[in-house]
Simulated scan of single mutants.
Amino acid sequence: MLVELDLFSGRPNPRWRLAPGAAEEFRALTAGLPPAGPAARTPSPGLGYRGFTVRDADRVVHVFAGRVTEGDASRTDPGRSLERWLLAQLPSSLGHLCSVVAEALDGDDG
């Protein structure tokens, strides 16, 4: 399972693989989220942090702003727990990005 942190414009975004146990946990966390209603839409991101994209075989899941989308299906994550969980999976080599993303998550909550 490959995770991409959508953060940069004009240069490659950081990517890393989840360990098998973490991949299973991601699948379970995603499946446990409630479906979003028909009016639920993900806000349009600007520059900077724009969420996570997770690729799992032929499945592509985008996690941003309390929404988890996969194709036409959408789930809600009002506490942004899945985004925070993915941030916690950031490899130590990318640790310098943690505060940038955490600040964006905290700033968007209010």
Rank of each mutant, 00 (worst) to 15 (best):
S74I: 03
G71Q: 05
A57Q: 15
T53I: 15
R59Q: 12
E70K: 07
R67S: 01
S81D: 09
A57C: 14
H62G: 07
D72R: 15
S81A: 07
R75A: 03
G71Y: 07
F52K: 06
S81L: 07
G66D: 13
T69N: 06
D77K: 03
R75W: 08
A73F: 01
A65S: 06
G79T: 02
S81Y: 09
D72I: 14
A57P: 09
T53M: 11
R59D: 13
G71D: 06
A57T: 14
E70H: 06
V63C: 12
A73N: 02
H62N: 07
V60P: 04
G71T: 05
A65V: 01
S74F: 04
P78H: 05
D58I: 14
V60N: 07
A65R: 01
F64K: 04
D58Q: 13
F64S: 05
V68A: 12
G66P: 11
F52L: 09
V61S: 04
V63M: 09
G79N: 02
T69F: 08
A57S: 12
G66L: 06
D56M: 12
G71A: 10
R59M: 11
F64D: 08
R59N: 06
T69H: 15
D77C: 00
R67C: 01
V54P: 13
A73I: 00
R55F: 10
V63W: 15
T53Q: 14
T53P: 08
P78K: 02
S81K: 03
S74N: 03
D72V: 15
P78E: 03
R80P: 04
T76P: 05
D72H: 11
R67V: 03
R75H: 10
D58N: 09
G66A: 13
R67T: 00
R75V: 02
D77M: 01
A65K: 00
H62E: 12
R75S: 02
V63Q: 10
V63G: 15
V54G: 13
T69D: 07
T53S: 15
D58R: 13
V63K: 05
R55P: 06
V61C: 06
P78I: 00
V54W: 13
V68K: 08
G71I: 05
A57E: 14
P78L: 02
H62A: 14
R75N: 01
A73T: 00
G66V: 10
V60G: 04
G71L: 09
R59P: 09
G66T: 08
V60Q: 13
A57M: 13
D56Q: 12
R67N: 02
D72S: 14
F64P: 10
A65Y: 11
G79L: 02
A65I: 05
A73C: 00
P78C: 03
D77V: 04
V54R: 15
R75G: 02
V63P: 15
R80D: 01
T69M: 08
D72K: 13
V60T: 14
V60D: 08
P78A: 01
F64Y: 14
T69L: 04
D72F: 12
S81E: 06
F52Q: 04
V68F: 09
V60I: 10
G66W: 12
P78V: 00
T53W: 15
A57V: 09
V54K: 11
P78F: 04
G79K: 00
D56W: 14
T76G: 02
R55A: 15
R75I: 01
V63N: 11
S81R: 07
V63E: 10
H62S: 14
V63I: 08
V61T: 10
A65G: 08
V61K: 05
T53C: 14
F52V: 05
S74L: 07
G71P: 05
